[in-house]
């Protein structure tokens, strides 16, 4: 083998002359250019083929944040319960949904009713705040609404629920579990003057951050712990307080009524750590909340 000839091993080349290096560089460049042209042709072929196809409309991508929690079967009906961002049911506010099947055909019209009841081994049972009617949401593909579980399941307390579709059929007394979840909060107090139980349930923030957070709560009242009404005529005044440092914060926005018992405002956590948010609630010019009513947050 001559000293001036290259030794080839695939793409590996021992370059032992300048002339050869130039020649070999040009060869590789030409090959790459050819490959580049092939790629362009391939790209156009794909584009043209796609444009000419009958199946050009891709199916909508459903990016649901709901997870299936449980399925209830009865005869030819099947009901699936979903929870947003969780595959379990949590004490406090849950954004839930239902899929209803009859003879394996999904129902998408009408309304759906969900009636949870807690039974205790001792003492009377009770229900919990829940949306009265669930309606089908095409974007989510299910009957959607909320429920605020006031207690968790344990060895002496059991949750059961009745399910009703459009007053056409019902599935009754099916047991399920509710557990404590981080971020969910609910406060219950009795207003002796009005002989009424009030339920304040946090919707957000469940994962608070340092700075401004959307503050959303829902307020219910109940005289019998069976029927719950959304309170839509309250005024709320919040005061964030960092107990460890003994200061509050500025730029908070008191929650204002938005819809169906919901109140929305802003809360400012200026530092990481534990914060209390006191909520003073006035209904019909009467303060119904106690001074010690507050929600607890861990801002990060």
């Amino acid at each position: 083998m001559s000293n001036k000839e290259p030794v080839k091993a695939g793409f590996l080349v021992i370059r032992n002359s300048f002339q050869f290096q130039i020649r070999y560089f040009l060869t590789i460049f030409t090959k790459l250019f050819c490959m580049y042209k092939l790629l362009i042709l391939l790209f156009f072929a794909v584009v043209v083929t796609s444009c000419g196809s009958e199946n050009t409309v891709a199916p909508p991508v459903v990016t649901s944040t709901y997870s299936k929690v449980l399925t209830v079967d009865s005869a030819n009906t099947r009901i699936e319960l979903y929870n947003e961002n969780s595959s379990i049911l949590l004490v406090g506010y849950n954004e839930i949904g239902f899929k209803v099947f009859v003879d394996n055909i999904e129902k998408k019209t009408g309304f759906f009713k969900y009636m949870p009841v807690m039974f205790h081994t001792s003492g009377p049972g009770h229900s919990t705040p829940v949306q009265s009617d669930f309606y089908y949401d095409n974007t989510k593909g299910m009957f959607t609404g909320y429920v605020c579980y006031s207690m968790l399941s344990d060895s002496t307390s059991f949750w059961f629920a009745d399910y009703n579709y459009n007053n056409e059929f019902s599935v009754k007394r099916r047991q399920f579990d509710v557990v404590l979840g981080t971020g969910n909060q609910m406060r219950i107090w009795f207003d002796a003057g009005a002989n009424m139980l009030y339920y304040l349930t946090l919707i957000s923030p469940k994962d608070p951050v340092v700075g401004l957070n959307d503050f959303k709560v829902i307020l219910h009242k109940s005289a019998d712990q069976v029927n719950y009404d959304e309170v839509s005529n309250a005024q709320m005044y919040i005061k964030p307080w960092m107990p460890a440092h003994g200061h509050g914060s500025s730029s908070n926005v008191n929650p204002a009524f938005s819809s169906y018992g919901r109140y929305e405002g802003k809360v400012n956590f200026t530092m990481p750590g534990q914060w209390f948010v006191y909520d003073s609630i006035v209904v019909n010019n009467q303060t119904i909340s106690s001074p010690s009513l507050y929600l607890v947050f861990d801002a990060r």
Binding site: V210, G211, A244, M271, P272, G273, Q274, R300
Partner: peptide, 15 residues
């Protein structure tokens, strides 16, 4: 850089 909480745990400030 951050704060210590009541339990002496360091809580970082990110902003």
């Amino acid at each position: 850089m951050g704060v210590w909480d009541a339990n002496n745990q360091w809580r970082k400030v990110s902003q």
